[in-house]
Simulated assay, not measured.
Amino acid sequence: MTARRDAVRDALARSEGFRSAQDIYATLRADGSKIGLTTVYRALQAMSDAGQVDVLRTDDGEAVYRACRTDEHHHHLVCRECGRTVEVEGPAVERWAEAIGAEHGFTGVTHTVEIFGVCPPCTAAKS
Protein backbone atom coordinates (compact mmCIF):
# COMPACT_ATOMS: atom_id res chain seq x y z
CA MET A 1 0.00 0.00 0.00
CA THR A 2 2.87 2.39 0.73
CA ALA A 3 4.07 2.50 -2.90
CA ARG A 4 0.53 3.10 -4.13
CA ARG A 5 -0.10 5.74 -1.46
CA ASP A 6 3.14 7.42 -2.53
CA ALA A 7 1.91 7.42 -6.14
CA VAL A 8 -1.35 9.09 -5.08
CA ARG A 9 0.58 11.59 -2.94
CA ASP A 10 2.88 12.41 -5.88
CA ALA A 11 -0.08 12.91 -8.22
CA LEU A 12 -1.60 15.37 -5.73
CA ALA A 13 1.71 17.16 -5.21
CA ARG A 14 1.89 17.87 -8.96
CA SER A 15 -1.57 19.45 -8.93
CA GLU A 16 -2.46 23.09 -8.38
CA GLY A 17 -6.01 22.68 -7.13
CA PHE A 18 -8.38 20.15 -5.68
CA ARG A 19 -8.90 16.91 -7.61
CA SER A 20 -11.41 14.10 -7.41
CA ALA A 21 -10.39 10.50 -6.74
CA GLN A 22 -11.53 9.62 -10.28
CA ASP A 23 -9.32 12.35 -11.73
CA ILE A 24 -6.30 11.15 -9.74
CA TYR A 25 -7.04 7.58 -10.79
CA ALA A 26 -7.23 8.60 -14.48
CA THR A 27 -3.92 10.47 -14.22
CA LEU A 28 -2.17 7.53 -12.60
CA ARG A 29 -3.55 5.07 -15.16
CA ALA A 30 -2.49 7.37 -18.02
CA ASP A 31 1.00 7.37 -16.52
CA GLY A 32 1.03 3.56 -16.72
CA SER A 33 0.12 2.70 -13.13
CA LYS A 34 -1.91 -0.45 -12.53
CA ILE A 35 -3.53 1.08 -9.43
CA GLY A 36 -7.23 0.46 -8.90
CA LEU A 37 -9.85 3.08 -8.12
CA THR A 38 -10.63 1.48 -4.76
CA THR A 39 -6.95 1.73 -3.83
CA VAL A 40 -6.95 5.43 -4.75
CA TYR A 41 -9.96 5.99 -2.47
CA ARG A 42 -8.30 4.06 0.38
CA ALA A 43 -5.04 5.98 -0.02
CA LEU A 44 -6.88 9.30 -0.01
CA GLN A 45 -8.86 8.33 3.08
CA ALA A 46 -5.70 7.26 4.91
CA MET A 47 -3.94 10.49 3.97
CA SER A 48 -6.98 12.51 5.01
CA ASP A 49 -7.11 10.73 8.38
CA ALA A 50 -3.39 11.51 8.84
CA GLY A 51 -3.93 15.19 7.99
CA GLN A 52 -1.80 14.97 4.85
CA VAL A 53 -4.49 16.12 2.43
CA ASP A 54 -7.16 18.78 2.46
CA VAL A 55 -10.65 17.59 1.56
CA LEU A 56 -13.68 19.61 0.58
CA ARG A 57 -17.05 18.88 -0.93
CA THR A 58 -18.11 20.39 -4.22
CA ASP A 59 -21.58 21.81 -4.79
CA ASP A 60 -22.48 18.35 -6.15
CA GLY A 61 -21.34 16.71 -2.91
CA GLU A 62 -18.25 15.10 -4.44
CA ALA A 63 -15.14 14.94 -2.23
CA VAL A 64 -12.09 16.54 -3.80
CA TYR A 65 -8.54 16.40 -2.46
CA ARG A 66 -5.41 18.53 -2.39
CA ALA A 67 -1.98 18.00 -0.86
CA CYS A 68 -1.62 20.13 2.26
CA ARG A 69 0.88 22.94 1.84
CA THR A 70 1.12 23.50 5.59
CA ASP A 71 0.60 21.56 8.79
CA GLU A 72 -1.10 24.57 10.38
CA HIS A 73 -4.88 24.94 10.54
CA HIS A 74 -6.06 26.93 7.52
CA HIS A 75 -8.94 27.61 5.19
CA HIS A 76 -9.18 27.76 1.41
CA LEU A 77 -10.13 30.39 -1.14
CA VAL A 78 -11.10 28.37 -4.23
CA CYS A 79 -11.78 29.59 -7.78
CA ARG A 80 -15.10 28.22 -9.04
CA GLU A 81 -13.85 28.38 -12.63
CA CYS A 82 -10.36 26.82 -12.65
CA GLY A 83 -10.01 25.35 -9.15
CA ARG A 84 -7.00 27.50 -8.23
CA THR A 85 -6.69 27.39 -4.45
CA VAL A 86 -5.09 29.75 -1.97
CA GLU A 87 -4.58 28.73 1.65
CA VAL A 88 -5.68 31.51 3.98
CA GLU A 89 -5.69 32.08 7.70
CA GLY A 90 -8.83 33.30 9.38
CA PRO A 91 -8.24 34.52 12.93
CA ALA A 92 -11.69 36.13 13.02
CA VAL A 93 -13.24 32.79 11.98
CA GLU A 94 -11.29 31.00 14.71
CA ARG A 95 -12.56 33.42 17.36
CA TRP A 96 -16.12 33.23 16.00
CA ALA A 97 -16.15 29.39 16.03
CA GLU A 98 -14.89 29.29 19.61
CA ALA A 99 -17.41 31.92 20.72
CA ILE A 100 -20.36 30.14 19.07
CA GLY A 101 -19.31 26.85 20.62
CA ALA A 102 -18.91 28.40 24.07
CA GLU A 103 -22.23 30.22 23.77
CA HIS A 104 -23.95 26.86 23.36
CA GLY A 105 -21.81 25.00 25.89
CA PHE A 106 -19.77 23.06 23.35
CA THR A 107 -16.12 22.15 23.91
CA GLY A 108 -13.52 20.81 21.52
CA VAL A 109 -15.01 22.85 18.69
CA THR A 110 -13.59 22.29 15.20
CA HIS A 111 -14.70 23.76 11.91
CA THR A 112 -14.13 23.84 8.18
CA VAL A 113 -14.47 27.02 6.14
CA GLU A 114 -14.09 27.15 2.38
CA ILE A 115 -14.55 30.38 0.45
CA PHE A 116 -15.41 30.23 -3.24
CA GLY A 117 -15.07 32.97 -5.83
CA VAL A 118 -13.49 33.66 -9.22
CA CYS A 119 -9.73 34.28 -9.35
CA PRO A 120 -8.22 37.31 -11.17
CA PRO A 121 -7.09 35.39 -14.31
CA CYS A 122 -10.55 33.80 -14.73
CA THR A 123 -12.24 37.15 -14.14
CA ALA A 124 -9.97 38.77 -16.76
CA ALA A 125 -10.70 35.95 -19.24
CA LYS A 126 -14.42 36.76 -18.99
CA SER A 127 -13.85 40.39 -19.96
Rank of each mutant, 00 (worst) to 15 (best):
H74S: 07
A63I: 14
H75E: 06
R84A: 13
E62I: 10
V55Y: 04
L28D: 00
E62K: 09
D59K: 06
R9G: 05
C122G: 10
K126T: 07
R69G: 10
A92I: 11
A92D: 14
D71Q: 12
T110K: 14
A30F: 03
T123F: 07
D54C: 03
I115S: 03
C82P: 08
V93Q: 10
R9A: 10
A11Y: 01
Y65A: 03
P91K: 15
P91T: 15
D54R: 02
I115T: 04
C119H: 02
R69H: 11
E87G: 14
P120E: 08
A67R: 10
G17E: 09
H111N: 06
C79G: 15
V53E: 06
Y25S: 00
A102W: 07
M47E: 07
L56D: 08
I24F: 01
R29F: 02
G51T: 10
E72C: 07
A43N: 01
V55M: 09
W96M: 15
R57N: 15
Y65G: 03
D71L: 13
D10L: 01
M1E: 01
Y65L: 04
R14A: 05
S15A: 11
G83V: 12
Q52G: 13
S33D: 02
T58F: 06
S20N: 01
R80T: 10
F18I: 07
R29Y: 04
F116M: 14
V8L: 01
I100E: 12
D23K: 03
A92M: 14
T27M: 02
Q52M: 12
A67S: 11
D6A: 10
V88R: 11
D49L: 15
S48M: 14
Q52T: 05
Q22N: 05
P120G: 07
T58C: 07
H104W: 13
F116C: 14
L44M: 05
G36E: 00
T2R: 02
R95T: 14
